[in-house]
Design a protein around this nucleic acid. Structure first.
Length: 590
RNA sequence: GGUUUGGUAGCUCAGCUGGUUAGAGCGCCGCCCUGUCACGGCGGAGGUCGCGGGUUCGAGUCCCGUCCAGACCGCCA
């Protein structure tokens, strides 16, 4: 070993020991007669001390050390004359007797410090340097802890971790697939899994009963701060269970993680139907750290001569506690916010519930004091509150108001990163109608598609609606939402082949197509498939939530950028004509 | 595919209605300094203002195009 100790462990109790440390030179401070070098490794920082009075040659050697040089230092642990209370090793330093430069370093493009302020572009290009920083390393340590605790919890419950293949088969449902050409089967392609969905169901048919896997998944869709083309799921499946068994089991996992990793006692996770989530929050992943529920005043707002409300399908609003003092400028900002094309509202109506009890609205021309009192009653507003109202087509207005609610939550400081509020959203619709969206593959437009995936079981009581009103059928599907982030989701699967056939029919597959795409699963179901269901957690998101960050990139060692590029290794990249030829591929890109 | 913000020194940024030699902090290099820990002091080097075109006597600044990066919508669960 090139060291006897790490840079984080020596304290006042180690005085007089002769030790050898190895690490990187964080910084050196040359005071003339003496020179100090902060030696850094994964575990901490220990100060190396050099003094002209002790050894002039060693001092000269120390002065020549630059940032990020790799050093090995041997010496005696001594008590410092002036201690540093900010560092666990701040009471001691090493009186160096041998200094070896194990490797030099060119000047790094940015300083390796906790609070370094560098663009993502530079950080990602030199990710191996960024990873030397405490903050980034701690994120990956958190991720490691989460993975270990997940395995501990599931192992205790008899879950088996089983690996599933990465080279699989492309299917048209869901996200776009990444495809991999097959050299040995010319003109044919594998796909990378969007999730191990069908394999985990086959494991249930195989009788494995309780499966999990911490596994990479791949989706070729546009990215965001919280989306990567390759990401990690905690993927789980159970047999002989009902929905409530799955919710209880994995609520247990989440509570175990909060306790083991953050020492937080998470209360019982409440359930909310998808319909309630949409009605009260306009969002299928509501942030329940704060209340500010939607209130519909369509009935009392209409018929008073205000054309915007009279012509609207829905008039809904929120009551922002304590925001009555908002200035005209702030209200204008909110109006601009909701009018941005991404939000798409046409305007914002407000009513101030003043501290003297009077109510003043931006539409006083149409509504008298009694009308506004009625509003106040509906919103349960108190003096000092601000009522914000949007009107228009129901779905669009709910969506816009949801954004406004989150914005107000942020402005009022109600979205604290260290507060956690979890809920299960249940009873999702089974199907969604695809319009002829030009961004979609043309083959998928103008028909139903599965909101979750095609193997999700309808609620038994809604089965009859499958033929009459497919859009109204609810699924045995559920999402776990924490602080407005969808951290996981799943469903009870169809294990009956006739219902599965009915689903494929609804989704527009002919028998032949269904057989071609999913025949392996349907065949397996002929051999006695147990009732089963499961879910998957977005592991990166879960880590970022625990770590208090909005970006999952901070929790991935080597993430890709917005355009799916790895800035460090510069991929994707072109391949040679020879490789293309071997794969029978012709590129149309000039 | 769309909306939007940005691209000026190694890094983070300033640079007004177009006007002399493009600035600051940090970093880097040199000298001084014996208790620093964001050490301090003095001095210095470092720029194709993303790229291409246009307007103008004159463009970092205005216009058009293009490339790159970030956030968001669509998309994705």
């Amino acid at each position: 070993m090139l060291r006897t100790h790490t840079c984080g462990e020596l304290t006042i109790n180690d005085i007089n020991k002769t030790v050898t440390l190895s690490g990187w030179a964080q910084i050196s401070r040359n005071l003339g007669g003496m020179t100090f070098i902060d030696l850094r490794d994964r575990y901490g920082i220990t100060q190396l001390a050099f003094n002209l009075d002790w050894d002039k040659n060693l001092c000269d050697q120390a002065r020549a050390v630059g940032r990020e040089f790799v050093l090995q230092a041997t010496g005696e642990v001594i008590e410092r004359q002036s201690k540093n209370k900010n560092n666990p090793t701040g009471d001691i330093e090493i009186k160096v007797t041998i200094l070896t430069v194990l490797n030099e370093s060119i000047t790094p493009p940015f300083v390796i410090e906790d609070n370094t302020d560098v663009s993502d572009e530079i950080k990602l290009k030199y990710r191996y340097l960024d990873l030397r920083r405490n903050t980034v390393r701690k994120n990956l340590e958190l991720r490691h802890r989460m993975a270990i605790e997940t395995r501990n919890y599931l192992d205790k419950l008899n879950f088996l971790e089983v690996e599933t293949p990465v080279l699989i088969k492309s299917t048209p449902e869901g996200a776009r697939d990444f495809v991999v050409p097959s050299r040995m089967n010319q003109g044919q392609f594998y796909a990378l899994p969007q999730s191990p969905q069908t394999f985990k169901q086959l494991l249930m048919v195989a009788g494995f009963d309780r499966y999990y896997q911490i596994v990479k998944c791949f989706r070729d869709e546009d990215l965001r701060a919280d989306r990567q083309p390759e990401f990690t799921q905690i993927d789980c499946e159970m047999s002989f269970v009902e929905q409530k068994d799955i919710l209880e089991t994995f609520e247990g996992l989440v509570r175990h993680l909060f306790k083991a990793v953050k020492n937080i006692d998470m209360p019982h996770v409440p359930h909310m139907t998808y319909a309630d989530a949409m009605n009260f929050y306009g969002n299928d992943k509501p942030d329940t750290r704060f209340d500010m529920k939607f209130v519909a005043i369509t009935d009392i707002a209409k018929g008073k001569g205000f054309p915007v409300f009279d012509g609207a399908e829905s008039v809904i609003g929120i009551c922002a506690k304590g925001a009555a003092e908002y200035t005209r400028k702030q209200l204008d900002e909110l109006t601009d916010f909701v009018k941005r094309p991404q939000i798409g509202a046409t305007g914002l109506i407000y009513a101030r519930h003043n501290s003297d009890g009077t109510i003043k609205s931006s539409v006083d021309k149409f509504y008298n004091e009694d009308d506004l009192k009625q509003w106040s009653k509906a919103f349960n507003s108190e003096p000092g509150d601000l009522i914000l109202i949007l009107a228009g087509a129901t779905e669009k207005t709910q969506k816009a108001l949801s954004e406004l609610r989150l914005e107000m939550g942020s402005r009022l400081g109600l979205r604290d990163k260290d507060t956690f509020s979890a809920l299960w959203v249940v009873d999702f619709p089974l199907l969604e109608w695809n319009d002829g969206d030009p961004n979609l593959l043309a083959s998928l437009a103008g028909r139903w598609h599965a909101k979750h995936h095609p193997f999700t079981s309808p609620k038994p009581e809604d089965m009859a609606l499958l033929k009459t009103d497919p859009g109204a059928v609810r699924a045995n599907a559920y999402d776990l939402v924490i602080n407005g982030v969808e951290v996981g989701g799943g469903s009870i699967r169809i294990h009956d082949k006739s219902i599965q056939a009915q689903m494929f029919d609804l989704l527009g597959f002919t028998n032949d197509e269904a057989q071609k795409q999913f025949g392996f699963l349907m065949n397996a179901f002929e051999f006695g498939a147990p009732p089963h269901g499961g879910l998957a957690f977005g592991f990166d998101r879960l880590c970022s939530l625990f770590g208090g960050s909005d970006s999952i990139r901070d929790f991935i060692a080597f993430p890709k950028n917005n355009s799916g590029r790895d800035m460090m290794i510069d991929s994707p990249s072109e391949i040679s004509e020879e490789q293309l030829k071997e794969l029978s591929i012709l590129s149309t890109v000039k």
